[in-house]
């Protein structure tokens, strides 16, 4: 950086919000922190601040820089896209309101997934995991066969909570057992097994799903840290799901042993 830019340094005003953003051009490139001063407005959220940087990509030193790359879509915390680490905590940038955050606000990409660029990571593994555990209900076909089985409202109220999982990765990020050295599938996929296994038709394929969770990287690798349920932005009872599925795998394990 040249030294003669001091005259163009933008002095933060009390109405500016300071962001310190971890940046990188991707795997193989070094990462660095870049500071930005964003003019404050009421009800500002982290996504709003990143949008301001797009419109005017100038850093805290007043230098022209490249706009920060990040993911977002729905901006109302139902799509899961804008998940990142904000002041040390994995959460959605859309629902992170500046007024409720300590400044300077530090943004960094999730650490449990391969980095793409700046704040973007590749969470494909989460979708692959859903495929691994066969998280679908095998219907005979889409032709008209009348209604599905009746479901008691109490069951619906429980499964609805599980079905709100937006595959954001917050649970995996918070889980000490999801790391480079382990193959642990993580809490989200296990909760989806609980969801599908709780459905009368889904239960018909229960064993296949349990088997997928009984091998390497399966449910046994949960260390019961219980961070996931606390971290989940949708309040999904992940630990309860893990316990339920764990019970199912134990019963299934004993049964298959007895039937050998």
């Amino acid at each position: 950086m040249s030294n003669d830019k001091s005259s163009s340094i933008i002095k933060p005003t009390s109405k500016d919000v300071t962001f310190i953003i971890k940046r990188s051009n991707g795997p193989g490139f070094s990462s660095y922190w870049e500071e930005f001063q964003i003019p404050y407005y009421p009800n500002m959220n982290v996504v709003g601040a990143l949008m301001e940087i797009q419109k005017n990509p100038v850093n805290g030193k007043g230098e022209q820089t490249t706009p920060v790359t990040w993911e977002c879509n729905c901006l109302e915390e139902v799509c899961g896209a804008c998940t990142m680490i904000i002041n040390g905590k994995a959460r959605q940038a859309c629902s992170a309101l500046v007024d409720k955050l300590t400044q300077p606000i530090r943004l960094a990409p999730l650490t449990k997934f391969p980095l793409v660029k700046d704040l973007v990571v590749d969470r494909r593994v989460m979708f692959d995991n859903l495929r691994k555990v066969k998280a679908w209900i095998k219907i005979d076909g889409t032709y008209d066969m009348g209604p599905g089985p009746k479901i008691p409202p109490q069951v619906q109220e429980y499964t609805y909570e599980l079905s709100k999982c937006m595959t954001c990765g917050t649970c995996a990020e918070s889980c000490p057992n999801v790391n480079e050295k382990s193959k642990f599938i993580g809490p989200a996929a296990i909760a989806q097994v609980d969801l599908v296994n709780s459905h009368p038709t889904g239960a018909l394929m229960k064993e296949e799903r349990l088997e997928a969770l009984m091998g390497e990287g399966g449910i046994a690798e949960c260390g019961n840290a219980q961070n996931c349920a606390k971290a989940c932005p949708k309040g999904i009872p992940l630990t309860r799901s893990i316990a339920r599925v764990n019970r199912q795998t134990s019963v299934y394990g004993i049964r298959s042993w007895l039937n050998r």
Binding site: I139, P147, G148, Q156, T201
Partner: peptide, 11 residues
């Protein structure tokens, strides 16, 4: 009916 059979958690 179809979405119900696919397991949508309708109220």
């Amino acid at each position: 009916d179809l979405m119900d059979r696919m397991g949508v958690t309708f109220n």
